[in-house]
Design a protein around this nucleic acid. Structure first.
Length: 582
RNA sequence: GCGCUCGUAGCUCAAUGGAUAGAGCAACGGAUUUCUAAUCCGUAGGUUACAGGUUCGAGUCCUGUCGGGCGUGCCA
């Protein structure tokens, strides 16, 4: 909001004597340091170079033509030619009032029709053969957050969970089921037993000198060819696995518009390969069928020599189906970076069959590592199950919630047992989601229970706490925030802490935009942390209910209300809930 | 071998080519008869792996070296 206004004014000032004002407008940014004002324009340096004149001279000239007096105090030229801008308090107040009055969007503008896109987000995509583990959480929470933010900004978003239930892993399970089944264990907990069978077969296949590999592949091939017995087993296994997976999504508060698994595309695979063979895009190679792509050493295989299909085949068919069915402008694949090469090939391949392929983006993320820097495993060599992680998060949160509640004076009003449990659930799950989202998604991260479930410092809890403290003020002051939202009196910002908070509140829209620009939710977590931080400082230094006058009190309450709503909306977009008391 | 990717404080991580590289944790020192201390204020901690280069300006871009991770036709 603020920055766009400034850009517009600069554009007008540059019009006429600069060829392409748009190229340099991105150099208007929030200041890194408050002493450089609220915003800084860094465009005089490159323009100076371009025009062969001293940057400070250029900056002065820009200022001469810049009509900005209504928005900012007198701009300063500093250093090599930075233009430092400080907004007038009445301008901040005006925007705060707009945000306060906007019940749904906090004055975050909706995208114009021209900028709107239809975006399909492919994320989570668990493998039903294996129990969901800590690695799955990344795709799930990142995809969910991106989908929410994109939608809030005005894009049309379609989410699709591309469940893995048709690959070689099923051959392993079927083979395991026939040879190593523990019937009692299966009846007690089928998913656990299937997942054990998977690991068991996997282990045996990987043993040196093992002859199991071909037998396992044969089971997969039989399934793909419609063998009734294997199909019957498949039909038995998938629903129980899906129940398990759905339970996780429910706990995480995640829903998909579509859940079209690999098997959904199964009927399209054979025709696709035939078509590609016929039109010469694919050809036979060493008994298999592959597509030879420019610049690639090896072909992308789409049919094995035993006739079974590969994930490239399914993914290709999926792209075609999505184009036909959803007509997306963009498809995002929120998938582990180790599949980079696969997507690179797939995207290139899709370009061969689709006349106007959508923009295809691999939103890749790093691996979850152990202390040793290797892919994360527990001591027993297993990955950490997602369910036990969720359980532990909630348990830890419960301990802290209960301890804090007990420590409160009785008159503060204790939580009921149910409230404690629900509060712990929101805080624990929130901590887990936040720990993941707050990292740059492209880096690997070292798994640590303590870090992932931490509830101090830069965590969701910190924001939930700030939110709860606002609610507490409204409760104690017996004030309905609704009564503050349409006040006409301008907000006065007399204290530097008030002003710092106000300025941050007005950057919400920019935080959202930067979170989707490079598909990095950590841009939003960083913003929310900064916001909560400024609120905490304000909270310490600026009494609200005991303010020196009624008008100061009202203005501070308005800041409190907008802070709470911004935090709640921000967390909600990340898939994290707030609590009224904690 | 080739390709991709990463290397930032003791640890975990930030930083759309912009000014003096920032947080959290850990450490140390302060603040509480509280509008909720799950907090705040402060101190300390850096040759951004190394060497060149491009640029008015480089943690960021380019080249090389060293080190890690991943990928490299019948898994996903």
């Amino acid at each position: 909001m603020l920055i766009n206004l400034l850009k517009f004014r600069f554009k007008n000032a540059l019009q006429g004597w600069i060829d392409d004002p748009h190229a340099v407008l991105d150099l208007i940014r929030p200041s890194q340091d408050p002493k450089f004002g609220d915003f800084q324009a860094n465009l005089a340096m490159p323009l100076g170079k371009q025009l062969g004149r001293p940057p400070r001279e250029i900056a002065a000239e820009i200022l001469k033509g810049l009509e900005i007096g209504d928005l900012c105090t007198e701009p300063e030229i500093a250093g090599p030619g930075f233009i430092n801008l400080r907004l007038r308090d009445n301008v901040l107040a005006e925007f705060l009032q707009k945000a306060l009055a906007d019940r749904d969007r906090l004055a975050v503008p909706l995208l114009g029709e021209a900028e709107k896109k239809r975006i399909l987000v492919d994320y989570s995509a668990p493998n039903v053969a294996k129990a969901m583990h800590v690695g799955h959480i990344r795709s799930t929470v990142i995809g969910n957050a991106l989908a929410h933010i994109l939608k809030f900004l005005g894009h049309e978003v379609i989410t699709d969970n591309h469940i893995g239930e048709w690959g070689t892993q099923f051959g392993m399970i079927i083979y395991g089921y026939r040879h190593f089944l523990d019937r009692t264990a299966y009846e007690a907990n089928p998913v656990l037993e299937l997942s054990r069978l998977y690991r068991e077969v996997r282990r045996r296949v990987d043993e040196p000198g093992s002859t199991l590999g071909p037998l396992v592949l044969e089971e997969t091939a039989k399934l793909h060819h419609g063998d009734p017995e294997n199909l019957a087993l498949w039909n038995e296994f998938v629903p129980v696995c899906m129940q398990e997976i759905d339970r996780m999504y429910k706990r995480l508060g995640i829903r998909f518009d579509h859940t079209l698994g690999e098997s959904f595309y199964q009927p399209m695979l054979a025709p696709l390969v035939e078509e590609l063979l016929k039109n010469g895009i694919a050809r036979e190679t060493e008994g298999a069928v592959g597509v030879f792509l420019e610049g690639e050493e090896v072909p992308m295989l789409i049919r094995k020599k035993d006739g079974a299909f590969l994930y490239s085949t399914t993914d290709w068919a999926t792209i075609r189906y999505r184009i036909r069915e959803f007509r997306p402008d963009t498809i995002l694949y929120v998938v582990d970076f180790r599949q980079s090469h696969h997507f690179q090939q797939l995207f290139a391949a899709a370009g061969k069959t689709e006349a106007h392929p959508p923009e295809l983006v691999h939103v890749k993320f790093g691996t979850v590592l152990g202390d040793d820097g290797k892919a994360f495993k527990t001591r027993s060599g297993d990955t950490v199950g997602l369910e036990s992680l969720l359980d532990e998060a909630e348990q830890r949160a419960f301990q802290i919630v209960a301890a804090n509640d007990d420590a409160k004076p009785v008159e503060a009003g204790l939580l009921t047992e149910d409230e404690r449990r629900e509060t712990a659930r929101r805080i624990g799950i929130g901590a887990l989601i936040y720990a993941d989202l707050s990292q740059n998604r492209e880096s690997d991260y070292v798994f640590s229970f303590d870090k992932m479930l931490a509830m101090n410092g830069n965590t969701a809890t910190y924001m939930q706490y700030a939110y709860a403290r606002v609610q507490s003020i409204f409760g104690k002051g017996n004030c309905d925030p609704e009564t503050l939202r349409d006040l006409k009196e301008p907000i006065r910002l007399n204290d530097p802490r008030e002003r710092a908070l106000a300025l941050e509140l007005l950057k919400f829209d920019e935080a959202l935009e930067s979170a989707v620009r490079d598909f990095r939710p950590n841009q939003l977590t960083a913003y929310l942390f900064e916001l909560a931080n400024r609120y905490s400082t304000f909270f310490e230094q600026c009494p609200v209910l005991r303010a020196e006058s009624e008008s100061v009190k009202t203005d501070r309450l308005r800041l409190c209300d907008l802070t709470a709503r911004t935090i709640r909306k921000g967390l909600e977009l990340l898939g994290i809930q707030t609590v009224e008391r904690m």
